[in-house]
């Protein structure tokens, strides 16, 4: 964990150490997140570099930020989407909509301690959800953003973010319950 507030204030004062702490502290998380929006690893890396150069260039104009991590993630997402749109425009002359957030089973941590079948089911169910729901789950469970931060990030109002999560939780639960019933039936069968 880095002291992000302190690092940000140092950056605002023009200290390269502040920028270094933020860059090294969040580089990996930003890469991981960016690769779920675009599979172009070079582009993701370039956008991160550009964003930090921007922060350095404009450090004197930056204002105080309460949640530095959330700020960086939002700024990064906007920049990445802009870059993707620019790229697609250059390739086929058309502005493509941002097509969303992708997850695969490889993005999920394998847990030995946990009931494998159960978690497989939850994850499979997660993969069938829409891009926004996937991204919401990722931002909530991995990045650790608050509802208000997610609202800004997903360009939705906070109540809609809550509703989206509630719907998603319900879907994920349905697989477990189904799983439990199956387990129950299996047990009944094997007992006989």
């Amino acid at each position: 964990m880095i002291d992000e507030k302190n690092a940000w204030e140092e950056l605002c004062r023009g200290s390269a150490q502040g920028l270094e702490a933020l860059f090294k502290g969040y580089y990996d998380e930003l890469v991981n997140y960016g690769q779920k929006i675009s599979s172009d690893a070079t582009l993701v890396d370039d956008v991160i570099q550009d964003m930090f150069i921007y922060l350095w260039d404009k450090h004197a104009s930056l204002s105080k930020v309460e949640k530095v991590k959330s700020y960086l993630f939002i700024a990064f997402k906007r920049r990445l989407i802009k870059a993707l749109q620019k790229q697609s425009k250059m390739m086929d002359g058309e502005l493509q909509e941002y097509h969303g957030f992708e997850l695969s089973m490889e993005d999920m941590l394998v847990d030995s301690e946990m009931d494998q079948i159960k978690s497989q089911e939850v994850r499979k169910s997660l993969m069938t959800l829409g891009g926004k729901a996937k991204e919401a789950i990722y931002l909530k469970f991995h990045v650790g953003l608050s509802i208000a931060e997610m609202a800004e990030h997903l360009e939705m109002n906070p109540q809609s973010v809550k509703n989206l999560l509630h719907r998603t939780y319900k879907k994920l639960r349905e697989t477990i319950s189904r799983d439990l019933i199956l387990l129950f039936i299996n047990r009944m069968v094997s007992k006989r």
Binding site: E20, K24, Y27, D28, Q49, L109, H142, I176
Partner: peptide
């Protein structure tokens, strides 16, 4: 059960790579 299932892989670059990125920046 749901919270446990929702854990994501975090790829981490090693300190050497991260330093090289920082030098470039």
């Amino acid at each position: 059960a749901v919270a446990k299932s929702l854990r994501f892989v975090q790829q981490e670059s090693n300190a050497f790579l991260l330093n090289r990125k920082w030098e470039r920046l």
